[in-house]
Design a protein around this nucleic acid. Structure first.
Lengths: 218, 218
DNA sequence: AATTATATTTAGACAAGACTAAAAATTTAT
DNA sequence: ATAAATTTTTAGTCTTGTCTAAATATAATT
């Protein structure tokens, strides 16, 4: 098994690969983990020896299949714990990240298997991000930014782009939570704000908000 | 906050103090943690600097009030997690220890508070050991070894002395679990075995078994 | 293409935690 | 009370993961 530190590096590389495809630079990893590039170089050599990544000097890194599966498993644990915290322990969705960051490193296959079952085999975490299955595969659902919907279109809120505390708390205040049906009643050309309806309530939201909310079109 | 290692030492000292009162030797700690006495000396100096224990060279250690409270808090977390694993995730009571050993180090006061509430504020873990409250106090219940009961006395099974896997699995097989009412029907002078009744079932158990089961007399 | 700027790696140092082997203190036994 | 046995500590080494500063490679600019 791997150390906490190794797991954190793996996870960072995994997330970066979802954004940039291949050849993740040591600098990018350093920035993500708030550490120094020299520390990354050290660790990257170790992960490479363990066959988790491909690393050639000055050319960045790429996860191997083994590395990808290992990283996905950590993300799986992270997101299952987030579901647990929100659904069972009444955490709000902006409080879960730091705790899940710790819980994801607990080693016990049975624990995760039972937790998964206890939670009813969820496919998405409280932020709408997909939970990898045991093989590391993600169930991708067709998602659109709320800002791309046209007048009179509607969809179900399935996730956020920006998951900062402030944003999540704002959504909570407005009663916008995962699973809620949102209908666009008006689009204001002037400032791109939207008038939306959610659970019989009508109010308007800014372009910025609408560009950070993922919707599954109905 | 403290490192995993520091917490493990604290917990070991805490448990040793329940058995021996004061002046825990470095050797005793080393044996408990399966490490070397020299490593213990190093760590003990550190814990002493942090005011968690009193340490005088060659004279063993004693927990300070602060150390005691800190250690009790780790034990509290360990036992709450054990309850969670058994009650919610269907672990059997011989499988929980290693996982709880990891979970006890998760840092989040809210997590423990909510977990406690989610579990219905349990006072004892699945082995019958008391769960310290937030202040580190234990609720002590009057417990007797099953082997000390007289003929026709009965009591509720509240814990075990030996918590080895083999023993716990044996108990499971016989249907002896926490909360069950046990009545002593016969005591055999020859080998000190007992004929007991539990949930309408009658069978005999050896002296060894009876000396490892705690009972709350009715 | 040469020079400057940026990114990456190397070399050497440090802290935490553990270990071995040797020294010192304490305890036990004669 | 002294010698022998045991316990505890010290000194020095190792590994993991991090860092700074210096060196080297790559990329960008003119």
């Amino acid at each position: 098994m791997f150390t906490f530190s190794e797991e954190n590096y793996l996870k960072a590389i995994y997330h970066l690969e979802r954004d940039f495809i291949k050849g993740i630079s040591t600098n990018a990893i350093a920035k993500k983990l708030e550490t120094k590039a020299s520390s990354v170089t050290d660790m990257v050599k170790k992960l490479s020896e363990k066959k988790l990544i491909i690393y050639k000097k000055y050319q960045g890194v790429t996860l191997t299949d083994f590395g990808k599966k290992t990283a996905a498993n950590i993300v799986r644990k992270h997101r299952l714990w987030e579901v647990f915290l929100v659904e069972k322990l009444n955490f709000s969705w902006d409080e879960v990240h730091d705790v899940a960051e710790q819980l994801e490193h607990i080693k016990s296959p049975k624990l995760i298997q039972q937790l998964d079952s206890f939670l009813g085999f969820p496919t998405h975490d409280p932020h709408g991000d997909p939970i990898p299955d045991k093989e590391g595969n993600l169930k991708i659902i067709e998602k659109s930014l709320l800002s791309t919907l046209l007048k009179n279109e509607s969809g179900i809120c399935i996730g956020v782009n920006d998951s900062s505390s402030e944003f999540l708390q704002f959504l909570d205040k407005k009663g916008i939570t995962l699973g809620k049906l949102i209908t666009v009643l008006e689009k204001e050309d002037f400032d791109d704000s939207l008038l939306i309806k959610i659970a019989q309530q009508k109010f308007s939201i800014s372009k910025k908000i609408a560009s950070n909310l993922y919707i599954q079109k109905q």
